[in-house]
Design a binder for these strands. Structure first.
Lengths: 349, 349
DNA sequence: GATTAGCACTCTTGTTCTTCGAGTGCCAAA
DNA sequence: TTTGGCACTCGAAGAACAAGAGTGCTAATC
């Protein structure tokens, strides 16, 4: 139907205009900027209809229209076209990421910084989801009497460690004995299948009294459990203050206040990930009210998945105002993800 | 001299009032709130004199006075009385810090969070200065062909590690050989005395070709050098948005923008530390223009030193508006430092 | 039925003007 | 040295007003 076609074009034009100008867009400006082959009165009718459909709304009677959350959703789902970055843009991002790093963690930090700088928004990087990855090595190193370092090597070369307490009089030899035994019994096991019970029953060493052994095993277990904790790194929060969307102090306060609770953000992104339907290279987009976190009603999340090897993955993305250039940001995230995956191969290759 | 006494009392009253009310204080309100045994006209004369001395200033002709940077300085140096925290306050802080952690790093993060929450300001924690600490252990662990983990144990049980590249065909045994040799040659050396040259000349192992050895040594060296990098953790930036001092968006932008450059802040705190004159439990205070960082003209730094063992120390403190309750904040920092030192002893004892 | 011109109406934004009040500086007297 | 008194300054807050952008609706037109 031609009419509906035009209505959608109008919605698209409204989103495009509003995103760039940050001003409610009226029928007249719409005509001026996009060359619709109809009059402003017709557009007014269309806009009234779009409003009835819940896709746009007006801040007050005599202002233009702005997209509603559902309007953005429609835009993102059906109207938007994602285009390639220019060569310069790609090079710019590459330059920011391509420093020689040998640890996934550093690479992700680089990528996060690059993402926040190029988008001018808040970048978000989740640490890799390690629960499903396998424990390839585990070593207990004596640091000093009573303290040991648990070093774990997981699939795809991810390394984690933690300092733990051990009985004071345990000798380095005894520790090594336990270490070897633990390593042997856990070798290749996925992290989330390791429980204190399996650990205690499978480790056998006759030379060390059970009470000591159990204490070490317990500490080792806590180290393993801690290894798969999900963290989130946010960067570029101050960028939000530059956006007119948060020029009202209250909004900025709410936003940054909520973002300071890393755990909440991490949890939410994790949830989004679970609800994901598409493949690894699809985007998860949450707009405005769709976001269940207080203070983020005027924001959108765009996240996607990066991979470390075949088994380990994590999320990367941005948090920005609803009123953002979705298309551009998506291609930026896409390219950053591409760079991450590429570099991870370098590190692990 | 009695007169000067009163003038200083006036300055003190102005600072106290301004800090609590955030409003320029005039002669009349001064009389009302503090019971000066003189008339408002007399205070006006005193204030004119204080202004001539550069200790207070007026935002505009018909407003009251506010302390100048030098006024705050005078207040902090000579007028302020630091009083003990109440039992509840101490308990509150204790509760926030006293979780069982076995790594200094985690303890410091806890402390930082506690500090930012109790002060309502931005807390600042520097990683410990490790340059002067000694290398007690160094191990190279094979992660997978071509990748090794350098684990370093420094004085006072501080552990650092880094993943490095090694030649692909190096065997675990060869790596162990190098590792033992490196450890023997560096044992007990202060980090900052270790150079690539000393490393290369002192390590002897006949079984491995020089070119391979040197590559490993170089990577080990970078790991050692990276270990003593100073980082800074800032927490509670969003608190600043709640303060009326930064209700002007521009100020908030500048502030958060600058604080996002971790390196700059770290460098500056490091500088302050160098200029320090008193002992470890004294405070370093920098007020307004004294701070050489752009965007922090309306802020003050208060930092002090925590210790890990006898040789290692670091800084902890807050960044807040010039207009803050110096006395209160100082006693809060003091108590947090006390808790850190206490807990570190627990960890290392 | 879709489109358009026209027009009355609404509501924000910016400007100007005014008033109010807190605070100052200074003078002359105590 | 202190004080009462007074003229003066300046920002904050509010009222009044005009301008402008945009809408909805109606009646005519394609």
């Amino acid at each position: 139907m031609q009419v509906n076609d035009r209505k959608m074009k109008v919605l698209q034009a409204i989103v495009d205009d509003y995103v760039t100008t940050n001003e409610p867009v009226g029928s007249k400006t719409l005509i001026e900027r996009h060359n619709f082959p109809v009059s402003s009165a017709t557009l007014r009718n269309d806009m009234a209809e779009l409003e009835r459909m819940g896709l746009i709304e007006k801040p007050h009677t005599s202002a233009g229209r702005i997209p509603s959350d559902r309007g953005y959703r429609e835009y993102v789902d059906s109207l938007m076209t994602v285009d390639q970055l220019t060569e310069e843009e790609r090079e710019d991002i590459s330059r920011r990421i391509d420093t020689t790093v040998y640890e996934a963690r550093d690479l992700l930090k680089n990528a996060s910084a690059a993402l926040s700088e190029t988008t001018g928004l808040v970048s978000l990087v989740m640490t890799p989801r390690l629960a499903g990855s396998s424990l390839l090595q585990l070593k207990l190193l004596m640091i000093e009497p009573g303290k040991a370092l648990v070093v774990m090597v997981l699939s795809a070369g991810v390394v984690k460690d933690k300092v733990v307490r051990i009985p004071n009089f345990l000798t380095p030899e005894q520790l090594k004995d336990i270490s070897d035994s633990v390593e042997k019994s856990l070798n290749g096991k996925p992290l989330d299948e390791i429980t204190l019970v399996t650990l205690a029953t499978s480790v056998k060493t006759t030379k060390i009294p059970d009470s000591l052994l159990n204490q070490v095993l317990y500490e080792t277990y806590t180290a393993i459990k801690q290894a798969d904790r999900l963290d989130v790194y946010l960067e570029g929060e101050h960028n939000m203050l530059k956006l007119p969307d948060f020029s009202e102090l209250r909004r900025a306060q709410n936003l940054l206040g909520t973002l300071s609770h890393d755990g909440m953000v991490a949890g939410y992104v994790n949830e989004i990930e679970k609800e994901k339907t598409g493949g690894d290279d699809t985007y998860m987009i949450r707009i405005g009210q769709e976001i269940a976190l207080e203070g983020l009603e005027d924001c959108s999340f765009i996240t996607t998945t990066y991979k470390i090897g075949d088994t380990i993955s994590g999320n990367i993305g941005v948090i920005g105002p609803k009123r953002m250039d979705y298309s551009k940001v998506i291609s930026q995230i896409d390219f950053v993800r591409y760079k991450i995956n590429e570099q991870i191969k370098n590190i692990n290759g």
